[in-house]
Design a protein around this nucleic acid. Structure first.
Length: 776
DNA sequence: AGGCTCCGGGTTTTT
DNA sequence: CCCGGAGCCT
């Protein structure tokens, strides 16, 4: 039992206490994944059939990671027969085989958020409800919330409190929308993400024999990131575990970062109540990070009121202080990070894979991509707009979805006239109205077109088009019975006209769309090969679709994984990962913490936990950056440093902006690469002419947090000649005309910012390298 | 029918 | 900035 060696006392106990309920409180970097992995290995060594083990994770990334690690210990074949995956994927799989109990087809479609939003929009339209009052996103969030708390439509209407609450919120039609939404999904044979959990609950409560079957099957249950379970997930786990109570949950309340999607931190806080006999093990030694990093993270998280007492410590080297860089703009920030990585790569012999850039929102990626690309630093962006969410990919997938489940009207409307084949809106509306009037589905109408056509006032031309379209779909379906998914998809792409349509567009975007479709074909081929190799592989189209519906992270580029690249991702995605050197960027109020989550204490605490997660990803070194102005939402916005920065005790920090004077010393050295990066057009003045909300005589206030600069160097728009300007100088700007320099500020020469009061345009904040001012 | 442009609105995190 | 929708032109 080699694998037990090298575990500390607490870890050993967590790994070897196989029977009965167990809660492992695992601080960041305390070897949580290791414990889970070893525990599973230990179970198998102790002759538990892998078939009886269920391991649940939150993200595909975590599941994948753990699968690999377990396979290393117990071998591939053993690893393969245990059930491990995200809640959603595991229960989707169970629902497939039991769907008929719930009246769903086993080939039900899984709607992603986008699909479900589309359905909500349609429902609103159909019910004639003003989408301005009922913002689809808001409606969606509310419905999701109900589902995650097991409030079905029926339960909703039986609960006066809920109805009242919605009335008070001016949302009294929510119930109706909810009902209609559920109806449409049912008719379409579709489940959304929340349904996968809700319906599982329904299955387990309504059918005791099914519950018994899975209880017997999953004798040992492990749940990772238990602090992130929502009520629905909690109940499933509880139901499944109630027979044997061999349940091991692992989590860290300090890392609960998913309450926005219903995660309930009480699930972990109350574990002892649910299982009074439960053992608790705390893993407090952090093996990942330096003392400095662990201590800094601890100081910040201690500001949270709601938490377990824990003492996470590190016995690693003390380590360097966290370096803080204050930048002038998002571009400046990105350049700093890129240069920093480049430098450390060269001088400190760091591989690019040692670096991660972590940010709060996906929209922050672009600046970093630009900066890294310019320096030829290889990188990989995780998450973001999933490959499978791209329009051209979704279009092709819609065809495939329709083949598998022809009741999927979302898929049908998406492609019935795409590429254009003369079945326009008018015709589609006729079909829908007629189908509704006959109380049948559009699919049924299409199936019996000859029979219904006379009653629909469609001309012969349209009729032919409709029947051509539908026989094409039917032909694909027939093909699916004998041919593999890859060839069918190829045929679909060709015969539907999709490929040709995309290829006709020779713009760069068009070409990339074709490539994306090609990439989808590749990933399908990969899927096919993989499934064929497995003993119990399932190479069906339906399985393929399920896989992609439940995988947000796009692992499409498979030969990509072993190359040396910098990782870019949101903090949420980074959970569970570790990197020698972490850049945590965009540390500004309203960005992190997000302006959406700064109003209540609970919200800020979750943001703080997010900060904690981010910082504890770092092994050796962390960098914090923030910008004092940021190009956001189409314009430049001022920003203040994040409160979290000031919450980190200064003893752990080192501010590394060059002193103001020193930047003039090496001025010439820097200039060479500063202006190379200039966009040909100053991007933030585009199309800003009309909306003038300028206060012409705004009092001149010097921002308190800025350090004034005496002079700065500008480049004349005409050419390369440069001149110094200082406060009080009169300057001319291409668009804004003549003005007076009120204030100069900057930390490094490439990003001096100026406040200029223009005669007609009022006060403007300009970044000199973009503004192209002339001194007059 | 279909393609285009203009306009307005919304911008967090993931399954 | 990015999206989707409405309305206009072909």
């Amino acid at each position: 039992m080699d694998y037990l060696k090298g575990l500390n006392e607490a870890q050993y106990e967590a790994v070897t206490a196989l029977e009965g309920p167990l809660m492992v409180l695992a601080g960041a970097g305390s070897g949580k994944t290791r414990v889970l992995t070893m525990r599973i290995a230990h179970l198998i060594t102790n002759l538990v059939d892998p078939f009886n083990i269920l391991a649940l994770t939150f993200t595909n990334k975590a599941a994948k990671e753990m699968k690999i690690r377990i396979a290393k210990v117990v071998g591939d074949s053993e690893a393969r027969s245990l059930w491990m995956g995200t809640f959603h994927s595991v229960f989707a799989r169970i629902l497939r085989s039991e769907a008929h109990f719930l009246g769903f087809p086993s080939n039900f479609t899984i709607y992603d958020s986008q699909d479900s939003l589309n359905v909500i929009r349609k429902v609103l339209k159909e019910l004639n409800i003003d989408a301005d009052l009922y913002k689809p996103k808001k409606v969606q969030a509310r419905i999701s919330n109900y589902k995650n708390n097991l409030i079905t439509v029926k339960a909703y209407f039986n609960n006066p409190e809920l109805i009242e609450a919605d009335e008070r919120a001016n949302m009294k039609q929510i119930g109706l929308i909810y009902q209609k939404y559920v109806d449409v999904c049912f008719r379409n044979g579709a489940m959304d993400f929340d349904d996968l959990l809700l319906k599982t609950n329904e299955l387990l409560t309504r059918f005791p024999e099914i519950l018994a079957k899975y209880q017997d099957r999953f004798r040992y249950i492990l749940v990772d990131e238990y602090q992130d379970t929502n009520h629905s997930q909690y109940l499933i786990v509880k139901a499944l575990a109630s027979k044997f109570e061999n349940i091991c949950v692992v989590g860290d309340d300090a890392q609960s970062i998913y309450s926005f999607r219903g995660a309930n931190i009480l699930n972990i806080l109350n574990f002892k109540k649910d299982y009074p006999d439960a053992k608790t093990v705390s893993l407090e030694q952090n093996y990942r990070s330096t003392q400095n990093i662990v201590n800094a993270a601890n100081v910040v998280i201690s500001k949270n009121v709601q938490q377990f007492k824990k003492n996470v410590f590190s016995e690693n080297e003390k380590g360097e202080k966290i370096k803080v860089y204050r930048s002038l703009s998002d571009a400046d920030e990105a350049n700093f990070v890129a240069s920093n990585i480049w430098e450390m790569h060269n001088s400190a012999q760091r591989k690019f894979t040692d670096f991660a850039i972590l940010y709060r929102t996906n929209s922050q990626t672009r600046a970093f991509e630009d900066a890294l690309r310019r320096k030829n630093i290889p990188y990989r962006v995780y998450g973001g707009l999933s490959f499978y969410q791209r329009k051209e990919v979704k279009d092709l997938i819609a065809y495939l979805r329709l083949l598998v489940n022809e009741n999927d009207s979302e898929a049908l409307t998406r492609i019935i006239n795409y590429p254009a084949r003369g079945i326009g809106e008018t015709t589609q509306n006729k079909l829908i109205v007629f189908a509704d009037s006959q109380n049948i589905s559009v699919t049924q109408v299409l199936d019996n077109l000859g029979f219904y056509a006379p009653r629909m006032s469609l001309n012969n031309g349209i009729l032919t088009k409709l029947s051509d379209f539908w026989s094409m779909i039917k032909a694909f379906q027939v093909m699916l019975k004998t041919e593999n998914v890859y060839s069918v998809t190829m045929e679909v792409a060709k015969r539907s006209g999709l490929i040709k349509f995309l290829k006709d567009d020779q713009t760069p975007e068009g070409i990339s769309r074709v490539e994306n479709v090609q990439e989808l074909m590749n990933s399908m081929q990969g899927f096919l090969e993989e499934q064929i190799q497995l003993d119990d592989g399932d190479a069906s189209l339906s399985n393929f679709l399920e896989n992609i519906a439940l995988s947000a992270d796009t692992q499409t580029d498979k030969n990509d994984d072993d190359t040396d690249k910098v990782s870019l991702m949101t903090i949420h995605l980074s959970k569970g990962l570790e990197f020698p050197i972490v850049h945590l960027v965009g540390l500004e109020e309203n960005l992190f913490p997000s302006f959406m989550s700064s109003s209540t204490r609970e919200e800020v605490e979750e943001e703080r936990r997010l900060f904690y997660v981010a910082l504890t990803r770092a092994e050796k070194q962390a960098f914090f950056t923030y910008a004092i102005s940021r190009f956001q939402w189409g314009k430049i916005t001022d920003a203040e440093p994040s409160r979290f920065l000031s919450e980190v005790d200064a003893q752990y920090l080192e501010f590394i902006n060059p002193a103001i004077e020193s930047r003039f010393v090496n001025h010439s050295g820097i200039t060479s690469n500063i202006f190379d990066d200039l966009p040909s057009e100053p991007r933030f003045y585009k199309k800003k002419e009309e909306k003038k909300t300028l206060q012409r005589d705004e009092p001149v206030a010097i921002p308190q947090n800025l350090k004034p600069v005496a002079t700065a160097r500008i480049i004349n728009p005409s050419g390369n000649s440069s001149q110094d300007i200082e406060v009080g100088d009169k300057v001319r700007h291409d668009r804004f005309g003549v003005g007076e320099v009120i204030f100069l500020d900057g930390t490094d020469a490439q990003n001096i910012k100026a406040k200029v009061k223009f005669q007609h345009e009022g006060m403007k904040n300009l970044i000199l390298k973009f503004a192209k001012l002339t001194k007059i």
